[in-house]
């Protein structure tokens, strides 16, 4: 009987696993292979070993993009989770407008990135944007801030807009997780004299730990790989200050004959994404196990 169940388990898994292997894993493995050659995407190739990789680490443009992508990825994940959790807690306290608010916070996620880039440009443009026009009206010329045109600020603007777009699902998941915390236990703790903060840290947080794991995963997976927003909003500028790794990879793959160079960059990005994410998940799993005893 056991064997029969296992067999059907395999049958259940088979279709999707085949599809994942053929359409996801295999192309990635091919990319990895081609990153060790000088393939231009069409025609023949020669095997060149690790020279793409040694070149790429000498390229300051690449290492800058790498650091920048890590910064953006981690910051968006952390901020989106902090905001998401904070507002989920607030919304959980049975506010009257809860449903409407929930929808409003989620809608940014529903807007296609091209549209979001257009609308945010409309708002944030240094000369014609509504925000600066308003600031100049209030504070004079000095009020005008270069949201998108200063290499120092543009990264933060991108992070801000990404958090704005990413927030919705994270908030919803936290809300759902919070609803799973039984009221009786909270009340019991209160009766025992715990403060709200203690109750949160020692009761709520551990109980929503799986939700934290999912959300960190979402945040990192999206944050490390952002492409559409920097590409559509600023083209990677100014002075390359918003060029993430994905943008760079795209340019190498499509706008030059150095496809294999781009593929080695994407392999590095994948490895980093895997490492960072597994690190966080392992951490949060440990936290889960440590507090509720597995």
């Amino acid at each position: 009987m056991q064997r029969k169940i296992y067999l059907s388990g395999l049958v259940f898994m088979a279709p999707i696993t085949i599809i994942i292997f053929v359409f996801l894993v295999y192309p990635i493995l091919q990319s990895m292979f081609y990153s060790l050659t000088d393939w231009t995407g069409v025609g023949g190739y020669r095997f060149i070993g690790l020279s793409n990789y040694t070149d790429i680490f000498k390229d300051e443009g690449f290492t800058d993009a790498l650091k920048r992508t890590l910064f953006i990825g981690l910051t968006t994940a952390v901020l989106a989770n902090l905001f998401g959790l904070f507002f989920a807690v607030l919304l959980d306290q049975s506010l009257k407008t809860k449903n409407v608010l929930r929808a409003l916070f989620y809608i940014p996620n529903v807007i296609p990135t091209v549209v979001a880039a257009f609308v945010w440009r409309y708002i944030l443009d240094s000369n014609t944007g509504m925000l600066n026009k308003g600031l100049v009206a209030l504070f004079g010329e000095k009020g005008s801030i270069l949201w998108l045109d200063s290499p120092d600020y543009v990264v933060y603007t991108i992070i801000g807009i990404t958090v704005w777009a990413m927030w919705g699902p994270i908030l919803i998941i936290y809300l759902a997780a919070l609803q799973g915390v039984p009221h009786e236990m909270k009340e019991a703790m209160m009766i025992d004299g715990a403060t709200k903060r203690q109750s949160f840290v020692h009761l709520t947080l551990p109980m929503i730990a799986p939700g934290i794991t999912v959300n960190v995963l979402i945040g990192l997976a999206n944050g490390l790989r952002i492409f559409d927003l920097p590409f559509a909003l600023t083209g990677g500028g100014p002075a390359g200050a918003s060029e993430t790794l994905s943008v760079k990879i795209y340019r190498y793959a499509f706008s030059s004959t150095e496809l294999s160079y781009g593929l080695s960059a994407s392999f590095i990005l994948t490895v980093i994404a895997l490492v960072v994410t597994f690190f966080f998940i392992a951490l949060s799993r440990k936290y889960e196990k440590g507090t509720i005893g597995g």
Partner: peptide
């Protein structure tokens, strides 16, 4: 000059202004 390098030139020049 291929595109990514031309962009690198532009980026370098912009960086100089900052």
């Amino acid at each position: 000059i291929p595109s990514p390098t031309w962009i690198a030139l532009g980026n370098a020049a912009q960086e100089y202004t900052f």
